[in-house]
Every structure is written in C-alpha cells, then in structure tokens.
Design a protein around this nucleic acid. Structure first.
Lengths: 219, 219
DNA sequence: TTAAGAAAGATAAAATATTCACAAATGTAT
DNA sequence: ATACATTTGTGAATATTTTATCTTTCTTAA
C-alpha cells in the first residue's frame, strides 16, 4: 500500500523521538474534537492551549511528518487529521486479537469507537466456555486453540485476563505477537522486540496521586 | 500521619523527575511479583532484567526515596515494597469516585485487585436509573446529584462515560476533583492544576503500532 | 578481625527532549 | 502590486533524563 511505504520512508529517515510518537494520538484526538465543533483551520498557538503542549513543540512534532502547515496561515484541520490517520495507522488495517472476554474484554468489544483506529478486533479468546461464541459481532474462541486461530499476520493483542497471565503472554509471543496492550494489574515480562503498553487503573491512580502531590508541594 | 509528612519533605526537597514518578508503579508491581515467588533480596542488576530498565536508572530512581539499599548486598524486597506502598499512597486512603457505571465502569468495580492501591472507589455515578443502586458493594447514584454526593476531600475521579464528557469533567473540577483517570476515547480539556491520566485503548494501540514499526525499521 | 569482593550511591558524561529566536513563506489589506 | 502582519519550520541553545564511571560502604569468609 502506498501510504505504508511513504510512512516507512519518513520514519526511518527522520527518526522521530519517542516522546513525539506518544504525543501523536493526543493531537489526533484533539483535532477530531476541533473538527467536530466546526474548526477548519488552527494555529500552533491555539492548538497549544487545547492540548497543553507548547506551540513550538507542536510545530516540531508535526515537522517530522512533512511540511503540513503554511506560514502566516496555520494548519488545515482536515488535512492534519488525514495525515495523522495515515501516519497513525488508518491504512495499516491491523488485525487485533482480544485475550479475555470477561468484564473488561466485553467492555472493549462493545465500545464501538474503533472507527478511527489502526484496525479492528478480529477475534477474541477465553477459557470459559460460557463466554465463547459470538459476542458483539466478534467470534470468541477457546483459548486452548490460540495457536491455530491467531489470524495470519496478526501482531497486536489486547490482554484482559486475570489468570495465567505470564504464561498466556509467552504463548502469544510464540504466536508472533509483537505488541501488547495490557489491562492486567500484574507485572509482565517481555523479551526484546516486543512492545508492551500498560493501561492499568491502579498504576494510573498511583501516578496521579504522586503528580498531584508534587504539584501541591512544588507550586 | 508521619509518613505523609516525610513524603512531602522528600518530594519537595529532591524534586523527583516526572519520568521517575512514572516508573515507580512499574517497580512496585515487579517487586510484588518477585515477593510472591519467594525472592527476599534483589540487586539492581537483577531487577533491571525483570523490568527492562537499566540498573543505574533503577538505583537513581530509588535514591530519591532515601538510601534504600545496602552496598555489597542489594535491596531488601520487603522493605522496598513497604517504602513504595507508603510512597505510592498506601497511607493516603484516597476516596475515589467512579463516573459512569456502564460496561467499563462495571469492569472497574468488579476488578477486586484494589487492595494495594491508593484508596478505594467510594461511590459511583450514572445517568441511567437502571444502573443506579448498589453494584459490587459500591453505591451508584444519579449523576445529577454529583455536586452533593462527592465525598468530603475526594480528589480523584475515574471517568468511564461516553456522553457529555467535557461537561461532566467541568462539573467534576468544580466539585474539587484534581486528578482524573480517563477511560474515554475523546479529547478532554483541563485547567492548570488538574492532572489527567488517559488510559485509552485506541491511543495505546496507535502508540504500539508506531513503536513496533519504528523498531522494525530502525533495528 | 581483617581483607576481598560486590553492589549501592554519587558524580561526570552522553543522549534526549524542549524551547528560543529568527529566517522564510504565506495571506491580507491597501 | 506591494508592504505588512502573521505564523510556520528549523538551527542553536537549554533543560532534562539516562547512562557510564568512579567512590564508598557493606557483607562475607578466612
């Protein structure tokens, strides 16, 4: 696909800082919100006040993706969204698997805001037979068949189980998974080459308390 | 409480880097896992291989909390966990409110691994009368009564709603909330002094694809 | 009790990331 | 058509964070 190769070229030549990569989803979210409220054009300074990131940081972040703006004018919101969608994976069409169809898993399957993400949940897995079958249009298989039923070329798994966590992770990695979104509250060990994104409420609250308190004492 | 004031002293004097704050929950998780598998003593080098963080970074991170280790010996796992529990809020006993008792909200209420976190969900709120009442031992109130029913001294709210998001956030902040854990997929605007932690699957997957791809092209 | 080995803690150096400040480019008004 | 106001994009300067290296302290075993 055309965009995919363009992207690879941009990424490998310019070497985008990790910190920047982590801000891209923030920009995309904010831009979508702006668009929906009728904003068609935006300046880095304005956007800055929306996302709480310095204008110059924004401009530099954007610059890694090309000359997206126009001097004396700003950025075209639609164009930015288009670019970000491409860059952030719209055209990658990833097959994502969900491991664990309990409360959290179901919440994820039902949350139908997946229209602007990298790809879709292709299928899910669970140990519990009661949870197997088709849920919210997504087939839920027995986890023992994981190895056979992981879709061809699937790289990303969402982890929403509460038992045999490390063991399951090891199996997933053996199946070729290289990216994990982890909803678990436990520590997971991964080899080099695999990327883990933890979205743990507990850790988030801990960070929150920490930062809130530092803010209070420092300022 | 004694530890609380100690903490404030340490924090305000040494000015812990933000990056370090974000690693603390990672350490705590890993240490708990190590403890449960019988490890009583650990060296920075060993821990490094568990959490994928350089030993020297670990030592520096720990040093902000005092001289926790012993030269020539390492760190006592129990002691570390104790310190981290204190530092990460065990003794703060925060009252947390949950806003939104839908699929995600219920998943959060049911996940009963809250024993080692900062505090507990004191109560929840939802617009839908069907969801009100007591769920998993937690009272769920009508969201219109938010202003009256937010517990005294409550600073942290978990956001798991899908409508009227910004509006609700504004109300929460008016009620004195200074920390938000956000499960929403939308962009939220917050004033200075409020801390927002986004735990969005969509953004996580986007970051994941990005990082996975950079790894592939770079190395 | 003492010396050797080992690992933490501190300091210095390197790598990353952010911000400043200005040149180049564009739109807009006259 | 021209000049002015404005805002991007970027090289250079700062600030922050991480890593390497050295020093100190502690354990351990003879």
């Amino acid at each position: 696909m055309w965009y995919t190769s363009l992207w690879v070229i941009i990424m490998s030549e310019k070497n985008v800082p990790r910190a920047t990569l982590q801000r891209y989803p923030v920009y995309l979210k904010a831009l979508r919100k702006l668009k929906s409220s009728g904003v068609e054009r935006i300046m880095s300074k304005e956007l800055a006040s929306v996302v709480n990131i310095e204008p110059t940081t924004i401009r530099r972040d954007f610059s890694f993706l090309g000359n997206l703006g126009k001097q004396g004018y700003g950025y075209d919101v639609n164009r930015l969204i288009e670019i970000f969608n491409q860059q952030l994976g719209m055209d990658f069409d990833e097959k994502i698997i969900l491991v664990g169809a309990g409360n959290m898993g179901r919440a994820l399957m039902k949350y139908n805001k997946w229209d602007y993400v990298v790809g879709e949940i292709a299928c899910a897995f669970d140990v519990n037979p009661d949870r197997q079958g088709v849920r919210f249009g997504i087939p839920v298989y027995d986890i023992k068949d994981l190895d056979e039923l992981v879709p061809e070329g699937c790289r990303i798994a969402i982890l929403a189980i509460s038992e045999n966590i490390q063991q399951t992770v090891d199996r997933l990695i053996a199946c070729g998974i290289t990216g994990l979104v982890d909803f678990t509250h436990e520590h997971i060990q991964i080899p080099k080459g695999v990327v883990l994104k933890s979205v743990d409420v507990v850790s988030s609250i801990q960070e929150l308390v920490f930062e809130t308190n530092s803010l209070n004492t420092e300022r």
